[in-house]
Structures are given as structure tokens and as C-alpha cells.
Amino acid sequence: MQQALGLMGDQAIMIGITFAMGIAGIAGLFMALFWPRRWRLPYRVEIGFIVVLAGIVIYADRNSAQTFQAYEAGLETQQALSGQVAAGQEGAAFDRRIAVYAFQWGFLFFDEDGAASRNAVKVAPGAKVLFSIAANDVIHGFNIPAARMTTELEPGRVQSIWIQAPQAPGKYLIQCLNYCGLGHTQMKAWLVVGDDAPPAAQEHG
């Protein structure tokens, strides 16, 4: 959801913190093992260590919660507008509103007029797209690697996510990420980004 909001910098910081902590831990382990100098840590170091950890935890929680709320705010705007402004019109929260029917094993996409396409959906480059995903058989997943968004859907519930479509025209993978039966491997579809021209070389991620 960070990509949809243009917050990939936040994610990079989190991955950086993770790397730093991992490297620090492993470096500490090897120094304790092989560095000739012995070091008796005072207990207060641990207190300080906990405070630092707690700070990182609170920072991560706040950051994630803010991202999450901003993301959800987009969906709420859409709800508030639904019925008044059609997707794509001026004032709409999203350029496209696509209903997805996930089933064993494949995806159907319904555009705003209820017209269905099987295992592929076409959107304009950079469009803000709202997917309302539903299933009526088992728990499925819905993942668009290029848009960096994943969700999991329970049968009988409509799960809404939105993405920012990639700018480059092409075909991007959509896949199920929850084991949903033997055809799970094949439960894939294309997100076709482009205008009317035939899609270019197949791309991923």
C-alpha cells in the first residue's frame, strides 16, 4: 500500500532499519566470539537497549498506522462519493472502479458497466484503480506485484483495495497468494496497462 501512496521512501527506511539491526546483531555475535577484547556490559546498557527498541517499535507502528489510515481514507472517500460521482469523472477518488470475482481458479474483472473480462483487465497508465474483490467458494488472495499490493479475501465479503497502475505500458502479473485448491498455481491474470495499442513486451514487478 506504500506504493499506491507514493511512500516507498518509508518502506526503504524500514528495510534499512531491518538490515541495520540484523547486521548489528550478527556483528555483535561475531565480535563476542572472536574479538580478543572482552567487554562486561553494565546492566544499564540493556535498559538503554530496550528504550531504543521501544522507540523503533513505536516509530514503526506509527508509520505503518499512518500509511494504513491514509490508504483507508482513499477507500472512505470513494464510499462517500459512491452514487454521486462515477469513477473517472472529475471529483472521483479513483479513475477506475473494477469489481473482481475470484473463483477456483481464475479471476473475472467487471468494469463500471458490468462488462466482464476473463483473467485480464485493462487500465490506463498511472491510473488510480479501485478493485472490489469477492469470492464465493474459498479464501483466495489477490496480489499485483507491480503495484505492490496484496490482499486476502474471505468468501462472502467484498474486499476493497486500490492501486496506482504502473506508468509503463505492458502486461503485469496478478496472482493468488492463498492456497485455494489444486489450481492455485494457475490462478493468475494480467493487468494490462496501456491505451488501445496492443501491449508491449511482457513485464513483471
Binding site: Q2, I15, A60, D61, S64, R148, M149, T150
Partner: peptide, 9 residues
């Protein structure tokens, strides 16, 4: 643990 990253990759 972070929902924002978890929903990514």
C-alpha cells in the same frame, strides 16, 4: 509486523 509493508511483498 507492519501492515503497510506486509501488504506489499
Amino acid at each position: 509486523a507492519q501492515i503497510s509493508v506486509d501488504t506489499d511483498f
